[in-house]
């Protein structure tokens, strides 16, 4: 298991609010710290990891648990 510094449960949060909240949370964090984000499948998993990558952060892990996805983001 990879440890993380902070976590956001974005279940039920639609695009693009889920990404906006991810972004705001990352802004509060220090470079190198790790954020865990829980996303619904469908549009959220289609959009959020891509947008996070575009902002230059690293995605360490993506894992599907039932109908949700858990992703670990390392802040750039």
């Amino acid at each position: 298991m990879t440890d993380y510094n902070d976590s956001l449960d974005l279940t039920g949060i639609a695009c693009p609010n889920n990404f906006v909240r991810t972004k705001l949370k990352l802004e509060e964090m220090e470079p190198g710290q790790i954020l865990e984000v829980i996303l619904d499948d469908g549009e959220p998993i289609r959009n959020v990891p891509r947008a996070v990558k575009e902002d230059g952060h690293e995605i360490l892990k993506a894992e599907k648990i039932d109908n949700k996805w858990k992703i670990l983001i390392k802040k750039a």
Binding site: D41, I45, R46, P49, K61, A62, E63, W69
Partner: peptide
């Protein structure tokens, strides 16, 4: 690849 399955999902 770590076979996370994300690409297949999207």
């Amino acid at each position: 690849c770590n076979y996370c399955g994300l690409c297949a999902e999207i």
